[in-house]
Amino acid sequence: MNTLLSPAIDTVGELTERCDRCGSAAKLEVVLASGGDLAFCGHHANRHKADITRVASRIRLEEGFEWAGR
């Protein structure tokens, strides 16, 4: 459930980026509140869910990806 302080979360059909941690296909992209963006595979998105929600202004999830931070 989103609160007033939660980042906006959108679902998109497909992401074309690669994970910035390991190079696998991205399942989640983060627009950082401080500027810039990052992409994560499913493993790293779930592993870093608390940090992602803390620094994100917007999150894009690939359709079908069940993110633990949602």
Rank of each mutant, 00 (worst) to 15 (best):
M1W: 05
M1Q: 09
N2Y: 00
N2E: 07
T3I: 00
L4E: 11
S6W: 01
P7E: 04
P7V: 00
A8V: 12
A8G: 06
A8F: 04
I9M: 02
I9V: 15
D10E: 14
D10K: 14
D10R: 13
T11F: 00
T11Q: 07
V12R: 11
G13M: 00
G13H: 03
E14M: 09
T16E: 04
T16M: 01
R18P: 02
C19M: 04
C19P: 05
D20R: 05
D20W: 00
R21T: 13
R21L: 06
C22R: 04
C22W: 05
G23H: 05
G23D: 06
G23K: 00
S24P: 02
S24E: 07
A25V: 02
A25D: 12
A25W: 02
A25N: 12
A26D: 05
A26F: 00
K27G: 10
L28Y: 03
E29D: 06
V30S: 08
V31P: 01
V31T: 12
L32Q: 12
L32D: 11
A33Y: 06
A33V: 02
G36N: 07
D37R: 13
A39V: 03
A39E: 06
F40Y: 15
C41M: 09
C41W: 09
C41G: 06
G42E: 09
G42D: 11
G42Q: 09
G42L: 09
N46E: 07
H48W: 14
K49P: 04
K49D: 13
A50G: 10
A50W: 11
A50R: 15
D51T: 13
T53S: 08
T53W: 06
R54M: 07
R54Q: 09
R54G: 05
V55T: 14
V55D: 11
A56Q: 08
A56W: 03
S57V: 14
S57H: 12
R58T: 14
R58W: 05
R60N: 10
R60A: 13
R60E: 12
L61M: 09
L61V: 13
E62T: 10
E63P: 08
E63H: 14
E63Q: 15
W67E: 04
A68E: 13
A68V: 10
G69V: 13
G69W: 12
